[in-house]
């Protein structure tokens, strides 16, 4: 091994041990090279496959690139078999803010309606994920018979790939032979044409996603609960606190760090959750139940692939999420949480 001192904690460097001070960069390299060595593969891959595409995507959103006009030259085969190439007169070009104007004015797609649906979808899913996850975690966090079995069963939906869950629930909500309508008929309610109205259509997707997402929240919160010191509960019990008071004044504050992280991640993931809407509602009826990501996908990729349009939507979606996380962090900081 080298002479580098392991520096597990960010402790001050052992100054004065070296006879002469090398340059700052050199020292920084000596001190941190193994840390950089450990992260460099990930950084390179992310730079190539996330950041380059991001920059390129932002650039494309100011052009009119589509599948049809991407070629720099148009080549035609002449009778003799040789190829003649001419510059493409309709080649894609820089168009400034045109794409944004077209999207935001509703000329292509239904940006504002999709945004509204996305908000309903995200809020509903995250509220239920968190609420149900918290409720189940509280119940599972107490000693009782069959706890492990309950935990395994309740986490099971997590192990089902999202596209399989989507198929399963689409099957259950089938108008003609689905389980949901069979159950409704069995208790004497008329079967519902789930995908005939955007509200019920969205409801099916939300139910699917809640089913899919509760286990993650439950497990994360359960883990968080187990880090809360038991003495706090004992002290509260001695002081005569009611279960509700203990929950409100010990469990919830104790879970704050976990909650903040999982709510932020959950919001971002749900906002961008592609397969559920795409496969369960397929935007029925008539695209009214699309969220932004699926709507953008259909607007940009059905028919002639419109790369610039998809990039425009992507930039808009990313901007919404960035604004949200900035406000979210600011709100947390105002409440005294340094995150």
């Amino acid at each position: 091994m080298t002479t580098v001192t392991a520096d597990p904690a960010p402790a001050p460097a052992p100054a004065g041990r070296r006879p002469k001070q090398p340059s700052r960069l050199r020292r920084s390299w000596d001190k941190h090279w193994y840390a950089w060595a450990m992260v460099i593969p990930v950084v390179v891959v992310l730079a190539v496959l996330i950041f380059y595409p991001l920059v390129r995507g932002i650039y494309l959103s100011f052009t009119n690139l589509t599948e049809a006009n991407q070629a720099a030259e148009i080549c035609t085969r002449s009778i003799t078999g040789s190829e003649v190439c001419k510059p493409n007169p309709n080649r894609w070009e820089f168009v400034g803010l045109d794409n944004y104007v077209r999207v935001l004015s509703g000329e292509v797609g239904e940006f504002w309606q999709w945004t509204a649906v996305t908000l309903i979808w995200t809020v509903a899913c995250v509220v239920f994920h968190y609420g149900l996850g918290l409720g189940l975690a509280v119940m599972l966090n107490r000693p009782m018979w069959g706890r492990t079995l309950y935990r395994i069963l309740l986490v099971l939906p997590w192990a089902v790939p999202a596209f399989v869950s989507a198929f399963a629930w689409k099957f259950i909500f089938n108008e003609r032979f689905g389980l949901a309508n069979s159950l409704l008929t069995a208790v004497g309610i008329d079967p519902v044409d789930w995908f005939g109205d955007w509200r019920t259509s969205l409801l099916t997707a939300i139910v699917t996603n809640i089913w899919l997402g509760v286990p993650f929240m439950m497990v994360a919160l359960l883990g968080g609960m187990q880090t809360i010191p038991a003495e706090l509960y004992e002290a509260a019990e001695i002081d005569g606190a009611t279960p509700w008071q203990r929950f409100k004044n010990i469990t919830l504050p104790g879970l704050r760090p976990v909650s903040m992280t999982v709510i932020l991640l959950g919001t971002i993931w749900t906002f961008n959750m592609f397969p559920i809407i795409f496969l369960v509602t397929e935007g029925q009826p008539a695209g009214e139940s699309e969220i932004l990501v699926t709507g953008a996908y259909r607007a940009a990729f059905e028919g002639i692939r419109n790369y610039s349009l998809s990039s425009t939507y992507g930039v808009l979606i990313l901007s919404i999420l960035l604004v949200f996380s900035v406000f979210y962090r600011r709100m947390l900081r105002k409440q005294g949480e340094v995150w």
Binding site: L46, Y52, R56, N272, A296, Y313, G314
Partner: peptide, 24 residues
């Protein structure tokens, strides 16, 4: 910065990345 980048990557919709990644 790297920690922040990890969080921000979660926000990228596939729709924006898929075409440039395809090119790469």
């Amino acid at each position: 910065p790297l920690m922040m980048v990890f969080l921000v990557t979660q926000m990228f919709p596939v729709a924006i990345l898929i075409v440039p990644i395809y090119t790469i």
